[in-house]
Amino acid sequence: MTGEVAVLGAGMHPWGKWGRSFVEYGTKAARDALADAGLEWGAVQSVVGADTVRGGYPGYVAGATFARALGWQGARVTSVYAACASGAQAINTARAQILAGMAEVVLVVGADAAPKGFFAPAGGERPDDPDWLRFRVLGATNPEYFGLYARRRMALYGDTVEDFAQVKVKNSAAGAANPYARYRKRVTAEEVAASPVVADPLRLLDICATSDGAAALVLSSMDFARRHGAADPVRIRAVSTATPHYPRTVLDLPDIATDSAAAVPEPATGFRASIARGAYEEAGIGPEDLSLAEVYDLSTALELEWYEDLGLCGAGEATKLLRDGATALGGRLPVNASGGLSSFGEAVPAQAVAQVCELTWQLRGHAGERQVPGARVGLTANQGLFGHGSAVVAVR
């Protein structure tokens, strides 16, 4: 397909709390990706950095920051910010440059050094930002928000805290086999139940941590990949970067309308479902074609929401997939074979890049103990503040 670009290299810095600069993490991931691609830094014609708002000015100009750290060599630089979807937006920017003929080889890097505790809204007062208002007016920090989603699932579909715990059990088993994961210990349902309540009904082990970490990709045109000797590389076939449809802009709740919204036609799908739909349509595939998926599991309950939004099952049927073992390693369609954010924590600009790194290794058959047998098609899904949605389809 004319819209495909090759993934020549993937690299990561392990997630954790290392107490060092995001630049160090990103540079390490970039060098690993270049080594994986078999390319020298001088071959890179463009660098796209996913911004971090916690790194001061260097974080706002991440593309140039990483180019400088690797050694100025004249490459084009671009910096991208889309909150938790920054990495996918950076991938999409790199792909667009390649398909437009602006560059043949592009390095994508995302890295973060996260503070301890909850993420606070960055950038000062933002009264026109609904997410800022959620924090400041409602006092609904992210864990509280995740708890509301969990309660909604319990009320609508009968999900239980035991179901949520099983998502953590599943993901910790995968993360235990991932050398880049922060948490590499299998967790039992009893350990989840014994952890402190953070935002009822969610406990500490139901919610992802904040982390340091980095991920990088080397992307190229298909012509360059062939000249470089990569006859059958992993390919990015689609990138969806979606925004909500009015009036369903946040919760996708049924039967909610105001007088002003009543005359507005309801969208065919909610926001998260539209993210996946855009990727499926561009790639010419459907959920039945997937070998695996990497989704944005800020909480255990939110992972279940993604099963339904990706079309892996119908509304309210996510727990059946989970209980049947379909989404675990060895199941019909593993979800978060990497271990997910449950095992990594959030390094915000890196996480959507890390998802594609995992797809790359899985589609190459290089994922070790967590390998999905015969993996051919993978999908990522991610969502950032202020209406940033993203999904990437990778194939081989």
Results as ranks from 00 to 15, higher is better:
residue 3 G to W: 02
residue 3 G to Q: 07
residue 11 G to F: 01
residue 11 G to T: 00
residue 11 G to S: 02
residue 15 W to F: 14
residue 16 G to E: 04
residue 26 G to I: 13
residue 30 A to L: 02
residue 31 R to V: 00
residue 32 D to N: 06
residue 34 L to E: 03
residue 35 A to W: 01
residue 46 S to M: 15
residue 48 V to H: 05
residue 49 G to T: 13
residue 61 V to K: 04
residue 62 A to C: 12
residue 65 T to S: 11
residue 67 A to P: 03
residue 75 A to K: 06
residue 76 R to T: 14
residue 84 C to Q: 07
residue 84 C to R: 11
residue 84 C to G: 15
residue 89 Q to I: 05
residue 98 I to L: 06
residue 98 I to H: 03
residue 99 L to H: 06
residue 104 E to K: 01
residue 105 V to R: 07
residue 110 G to E: 14
residue 114 A to Y: 04
residue 116 K to R: 13
residue 119 F to R: 06
residue 127 P to W: 04
residue 129 D to W: 05
residue 131 D to Q: 07
residue 132 W to Q: 10
residue 136 R to D: 00
residue 138 L to K: 10
residue 139 G to Y: 00
residue 149 Y to P: 01
residue 152 R to D: 02
residue 152 R to E: 04
residue 155 A to C: 00
residue 155 A to T: 04
residue 157 Y to S: 14
residue 158 G to C: 13
residue 159 D to M: 03
residue 167 V to C: 14
residue 169 V to H: 05
residue 172 S to I: 12
residue 174 A to V: 04
residue 175 G to I: 11
residue 176 A to M: 09
residue 179 P to T: 05
residue 180 Y to E: 15
residue 180 Y to D: 13
residue 188 T to F: 09
residue 189 A to M: 08
residue 190 E to V: 12
residue 190 E to P: 12
residue 191 E to Q: 15
residue 199 A to D: 05
residue 203 R to Q: 09
residue 205 L to A: 08
residue 208 C to F: 03
residue 210 T to K: 02
residue 211 S to V: 07
residue 216 A to H: 01
residue 218 V to G: 02
residue 224 F to A: 07
residue 226 R to S: 09
residue 230 A to G: 01
residue 230 A to E: 14
residue 230 A to I: 09
residue 232 D to E: 15
residue 235 R to S: 11
residue 236 I to K: 00
residue 237 R to N: 10
residue 238 A to T: 07
residue 240 S to N: 12
residue 241 T to H: 05
residue 241 T to E: 08
residue 243 T to C: 04
residue 247 P to R: 03
residue 248 R to M: 03
residue 250 V to K: 03
residue 252 D to T: 14
residue 253 L to A: 15
residue 257 A to S: 15
residue 258 T to V: 10
residue 263 A to F: 03
residue 263 A to I: 01
residue 268 A to C: 06
residue 275 I to L: 04
residue 275 I to V: 13
residue 276 A to R: 01
residue 280 Y to N: 13
residue 282 E to P: 00
residue 283 A to Q: 08
residue 283 A to C: 08
residue 284 G to P: 07
residue 285 I to W: 11
residue 286 G to P: 07
residue 297 D to Q: 09
residue 298 L to Q: 04
residue 313 C to I: 13
residue 314 G to T: 06
residue 316 G to I: 12
residue 321 L to I: 05
residue 328 A to K: 15
residue 331 G to N: 12
residue 339 G to Q: 08
residue 339 G to V: 13
residue 342 S to V: 09
residue 342 S to F: 02
residue 356 V to W: 02
residue 357 C to T: 12
residue 361 W to A: 07
residue 366 H to R: 12
residue 366 H to N: 07
residue 367 A to D: 06
residue 370 R to G: 06
residue 371 Q to N: 03
residue 372 V to N: 07
residue 376 R to K: 14
residue 382 N to G: 10
residue 383 Q to F: 01
residue 383 Q to E: 04
residue 384 G to P: 08
residue 385 L to C: 13
residue 386 F to A: 14
residue 386 F to I: 15
residue 388 H to T: 04
residue 393 V to S: 01
residue 394 A to K: 11
residue 395 V to Y: 01
residue 395 V to H: 01
